Simulated assay, not measured.
Amino acid sequence: MESERGTGRGRDRDEVGRARSGRPRDGLGRPLAYGAEGVARQPEGVVRAPDATVREAQRLLDAGMPFHAHEVFEDAWKSGPDGERDLWQGLAQLAVGLTHAARGNATGGARLLRRGASRVEEYGRGGAQTYGIDMAGLAGWARRLAGRVETAGGPVDAAAEAPRLTGPGH
């Protein structure tokens, strides 16, 4: 990535010229100072099978990196079938909601958690699972966390609050 800092243009650009920050990021996706030690960024535009998307996102959620899990879900919504766009967007919203809650933004976190819950809930009607995810259970997790975040304020521990996408543990 090429930096244009100091050139008068003030923006970093990727290899095809799109504006993209070259600053390192922490585990919650917050930009750090240039030269600081950050976490590895998720590559953009990776096309994965749905099960691989869920596994990679779970790995990142378990590591307390919901912002990075959101990027995995974003790739799925951009590359997947149109009929699954709401599913992947809802999962991305849940990850971003957890990100905001972990950053201490209770209002934004709760709002995104509820918005994501509404989207994924549509895929869990009648107890159905999609790609092994208990959508109704996941929506319930998101709404409970949203309520706790609004009540308590303050940041939450992203790894401790991360949902289990498949299997028991919402």
Rank of each mutant, 00 (worst) to 15 (best):
E150I: 02
G109E: 04
D134H: 04
E2A: 08
A159H: 09
P50C: 12
G109W: 10
L94M: 13
M1G: 09
G22C: 11
R103A: 11
G153L: 01
Q93P: 02
P50M: 13
M65S: 14
A95P: 10
R41N: 09
A159S: 14
L32N: 13
G124D: 00
Y34N: 00
E44A: 13
V72C: 08
R55E: 14
R144W: 03
Q93F: 14
G38P: 10
P168M: 07
A159M: 04
A106N: 02
R85T: 13
V46P: 06
G154W: 13
S79T: 15
A102K: 05
A49P: 01
A57M: 10
A106L: 05
P81R: 15
A159C: 07
Q42G: 00
E37H: 07
P168V: 08
V16N: 03
G116P: 09
A160F: 05
D26F: 11
A69N: 07
G45K: 10
Q42P: 03
P168I: 12
T166A: 11
V47Y: 00
P24H: 02
D62T: 12
R48G: 04
A52S: 14
G154H: 15
N105E: 13
S3F: 06
D26W: 05
A162C: 13
D157Y: 11
M65P: 01
A158I: 12
E122W: 07
Q89H: 14
G132P: 05
G154R: 15
T107A: 14
A40G: 12
V47G: 01
A40Y: 04
V54T: 13
G108P: 12
D51E: 15
L145P: 02
R5T: 03
W77D: 13
P31D: 06
Y123E: 08
G167E: 11
G45P: 11
A136H: 05
R9V: 14
D86K: 00
L165Q: 05
L113W: 12
T99Y: 04
F67V: 01
L60H: 10
G140S: 15
R30H: 09
M135N: 01
D82Q: 10
R115G: 02
E122P: 00
G83Y: 00
S21N: 04
G109L: 03
G126Y: 05
A160D: 13
M135D: 00
D62L: 10
R143Y: 08
G17I: 03
L94T: 12
T166Q: 15
F67Q: 03
L145Y: 02
R20M: 10
H100K: 06
E56Q: 15
A152K: 10
T53F: 09
R103D: 03
R103G: 01
A106E: 04
G27W: 00
L98G: 02
R111M: 05
W141D: 04
R18A: 07
L113Y: 04
A76E: 12
A162M: 15
G109R: 05
R125W: 03
A102M: 01
R59M: 07
L61Y: 06
L113I: 13
E121S: 14
R5L: 12
Y34A: 12
H100R: 15
G6E: 08
T107P: 02
G22Y: 01
M135C: 13
A63M: 06
G83P: 02
